[in-house]
Simulated scan of single mutants.
Amino acid sequence: MPDSQSPAQSQAPPALKDTGYVEGDDFFTQWTNIFSILTGKMSAEGKERFRIAKDDRNEAADCKRCEEQRDYLLNYSPTIRYLSDNIRQLGGDLSSHNIYCRRCTQRKAGGFDPDYGIQICANEMRDQGHLEDTMAHEMVHAYDHLRFKLDWDSNLRHAACTEIRASSLSGECRWSREFFRRGQWKLTQQHQECVRRRAILSVRARPFCKDEAHAEKVVNEVWESCFRDTRPFDEIYR
């Protein structure tokens, strides 16, 4: 008669190195990892491995939810519909056929490509409100590309201006999101500081930008005119 399972066999797999992360998709292993995160026992590398495994496991469900919410927003969100109409008037077309929900490996919300359309990182979307802000941000980029003929490859002033406008007009820098999601608790100049911070980060990530000081210099050079420019809106609504 075979021996019963030994204690060693019944235990969860050992944590990888010293990261605190345990491989496995079963319920017990998942809660082991969550407990390690909550108690501060998992390293940054372990947390990243946990997130990657979760994204792999939930990819189909994340993309399906993203697509359903995308289609709803295209039909019923006043902001998204208004931007879509204005992009169409400039000869562009953004709808469900070229706004893609995909799993992203980089930690970002989405991106715009003049030849491809908009990619939404489904695994990074927290809720429908986050998706609406992300779609609005990328659609402002699309509007700017058509309206102002942006040079995306080498003109950092163009990049800085459209990032300022996208962060300002999309709603991602409204007071409630900064206060409750990002821990930015200032009561004055909060919107402007958020827009400036996000624009500098985006410009800094571009290949032709030397360093953070360079990014900040470029953003400052175009700040006044680009922050005041609310086209196609009459004012900042979100």
Score class of each variant (00 low, 15 high):
residue 188 T to N: 05
residue 85 D to I: 01
residue 91 G to M: 01
residue 130 H to C: 13
residue 140 V to L: 05
residue 40 G to M: 01
residue 120 I to A: 07
residue 5 Q to G: 05
residue 222 V to G: 01
residue 86 N to I: 01
residue 109 A to M: 15
residue 32 T to E: 00
residue 57 R to V: 07
residue 208 F to G: 13
residue 67 E to S: 07
residue 177 R to H: 05
residue 64 K to S: 06
residue 206 R to P: 14
residue 182 R to T: 15
residue 203 V to E: 03
residue 162 T to I: 02
residue 66 C to Q: 09
residue 238 R to V: 02
residue 238 R to K: 12
residue 27 F to G: 05
residue 155 N to C: 10
residue 223 W to C: 01
residue 97 H to M: 15
residue 165 R to M: 04
residue 134 T to Y: 07
residue 160 A to S: 14
residue 153 D to N: 07
residue 106 Q to E: 09
residue 6 S to P: 02
residue 144 D to K: 03
residue 90 L to E: 12
residue 46 G to T: 00
residue 73 L to W: 12
residue 207 P to I: 00
residue 87 I to W: 03
residue 61 A to V: 04
residue 166 A to Q: 02
residue 213 A to R: 04
residue 114 P to A: 01
residue 182 R to N: 14
residue 120 I to V: 11
residue 140 V to C: 11
residue 210 K to S: 08
residue 201 L to E: 12
residue 201 L to V: 12
residue 59 E to W: 04
residue 75 N to T: 14
residue 80 I to A: 03
residue 78 P to I: 12
residue 20 G to I: 00
residue 95 S to G: 05
residue 96 S to T: 06
residue 200 I to A: 02
residue 180 F to L: 13
residue 119 Q to E: 15
residue 123 N to S: 05
residue 111 G to W: 11
residue 148 F to C: 05
residue 27 F to M: 08
residue 223 W to T: 04
residue 9 Q to T: 06
residue 199 A to M: 06
residue 134 T to A: 05
residue 180 F to E: 04
residue 29 T to L: 00
residue 220 N to Y: 03
residue 94 L to C: 00
residue 101 C to N: 04
residue 146 L to A: 11
residue 136 A to Y: 09
residue 17 K to N: 14
residue 150 L to F: 12
residue 127 D to F: 14
residue 150 L to V: 04
residue 172 E to I: 07
residue 146 L to T: 09
residue 54 K to S: 07
residue 109 A to H: 10
residue 77 S to W: 10
residue 81 R to T: 01
residue 22 V to W: 02
residue 170 S to V: 08
residue 157 R to F: 10
residue 160 A to W: 08
residue 188 T to R: 09
residue 69 Q to H: 15
residue 224 E to F: 12
residue 191 H to Q: 04
residue 56 D to L: 03
residue 223 W to M: 03
residue 10 S to M: 15
residue 161 C to K: 12
residue 17 K to Y: 08
residue 27 F to W: 15
residue 25 D to V: 03
residue 11 Q to K: 04
residue 79 T to G: 14
residue 35 F to L: 00
residue 100 Y to R: 06
residue 146 L to S: 10
residue 65 R to C: 09
residue 228 R to P: 08
residue 237 Y to D: 15
residue 56 D to K: 06
residue 75 N to P: 09
residue 231 R to G: 07
residue 206 R to T: 15
residue 108 K to W: 04
residue 191 H to W: 05
residue 177 R to I: 02
residue 187 L to Y: 06
residue 202 S to R: 12
residue 174 R to Y: 14
residue 189 Q to S: 14
residue 189 Q to D: 09
residue 187 L to F: 04
residue 150 L to E: 10
residue 232 P to S: 02
residue 166 A to M: 00
residue 97 H to Q: 13
residue 47 K to H: 11
residue 85 D to N: 06
residue 121 C to P: 15
residue 152 W to A: 06
residue 136 A to L: 08
residue 213 A to I: 06
residue 226 C to E: 01
residue 198 R to N: 05
residue 75 N to E: 04
residue 216 E to N: 10
residue 188 T to I: 11
residue 65 R to I: 02
residue 168 S to I: 09
residue 163 E to N: 10
residue 59 E to I: 10
residue 91 G to H: 01
residue 176 S to T: 14
residue 211 D to R: 01
residue 166 A to R: 07
residue 50 F to I: 03
residue 7 P to F: 12
residue 165 R to P: 07
residue 104 C to D: 07
residue 210 K to A: 03
residue 73 L to I: 13
residue 102 R to Q: 11
residue 68 E to Q: 00
residue 156 L to S: 08
residue 209 C to R: 14
residue 78 P to G: 13
residue 41 K to W: 02
